[in-house]
Each structure stands twice: as structure tokens, then as C-alpha cells.
Amino acid sequence: MTISVESLSFSYGPKQALQDVNFLLNKGEFHALIGPNGAGKSTLFALLTRLYALQGGNIYIDGESIKAQPASAMKRIGVVFQQSTLDLDLTVTQNLLYHASLHGISSKEAQKQIDRELERMEMKARANEKVRGLNGGHRRRVEIARALLHKPDILLLDEPTVGLDPQTRRALNLHVRKLCDDENITVLWATHLMEEINIDDPIILLHQGSILLDALASTMIEKSGEQNLTDAFHKLTDSDSFGGAQ
């Protein structure tokens, strides 16, 4: 399953948030969307998930426009938003059943999927606990399980590790990478933490609403002349001297 973003532009009134954004996500690969705060990552996610209506440009999933076929697009996409969207007063299972029902899945079928995903996320034992009682890492695991319930081909994660400790961040990152390998799921992982990116990951560097670089992470290091990803990222996004590279 590929996602193709073509000439995407978006503005909040006079403020341009995205400007002529183009990129392609390849099937079964882990892609990192990086950029400092305010770069336009969350706006891009809102457009990919249809929370915002497209203003300019288009998004295609396997050649199918999400504007023309929104229902089909939503069936194929699983999302983990930056801000937690779990209902704190419902149990883990109740939250997951709610999500499954919104995707038109029967309770019986959903329960099988819930068992499978919670097992995979090592959260089965917490299934009947209220979300309010879970820590941040466990809540994120539940959100990832939820995003996978309807068996999507594409997983979008908007800064999913915000507020988590390093060990939990790493575990979540590894788990999502495993999903790419095992299930051939296409992943777009938005972050501004360079330790979450491998040197051979395809990256999309977004800065001030435009794409500065669409290449492998190693290319970012080469082009910046720095020694590591963190320095390369800071150099490119602090100085604005690296304009126009696609």
C-alpha cells in the first residue's frame, strides 16, 4: 500500500502551514516525518486522516484519491494521534470495542482482534482496567493496538513517544518497526527526536511548511556535513541554509 502526497498546500487564514508538499510512502517501509515544532507535521497528519479538508493538492492511497474515496481511505489507515484520544473512564477493552464498532466490526469479531492485538502489545492482563489507571507507556500501547484493530495497511503515528521515558520510547519504536517487517504495514512516524530514526530509514524533513529533504537519513547527514543525525537536523532546521533540496 503506497501513499502519494501531491502538491499539498494548507493555510489557517493568512498563515500558510503547508506549501506544495510532495512525497511518496513505499509499501511496508518505516518512514520518519521529522521537523521542529510548528513545521506542519500535525497539519499534515490532520490532512492525511481527513480531519481537515484538503485545500490544495491531493492525497492518494494506492492511486485512489482520499477526497473521492474517503471511506475506503479510512478503512486502510490506522492512526495514533499526538494527544491521547482514549476515554479515561472506560476500560481498555471498552475503548477498543468502541473503535472497532466505528469501523463497522461486530463485537464478536472485534473481541478476537482485541485479544490478538493486546497479546501482541503485552497488554492482555490490563484489558479490563480503566485507562485512567494506566501509565503513559501503557496508554500508548493501547492506542497502537487500537490503531491496528481494523487491520489497516498504513499506520500513521504523530509523535507517539511524547512524554515517555527512553526505554518505553525505544520499545514502542522497535515494535512498530517489527510491524513493518512482519505485516508489511506502511508506517509514517512523526517525530523530532533523532534517536528514534535509523540511519537507513527514509525520512521526510519538513520545515516551515515545506519539504527540505526527502531521502535516506544517511543522506541528511551527508548533505549537512555533520557527524550524526541530531547535529544534521539542528543544522538544517536552525539555519535555513539548506533550502530547496528534495
Partner: peptide
Amino acid sequence: EMGSMRVLLMSPLPRPYL
């Protein structure tokens, strides 16, 4: 405001129906 509305809006079913 809390963001949980987004879960509803991610449904593939038509929004007027939701």
C-alpha cells in the same frame, strides 16, 4: 477539546450518519 472526537471522525462511515 480533549481530542477524543477524532476517534469518531476516523470512522469510514459517513459523518452525518455518525
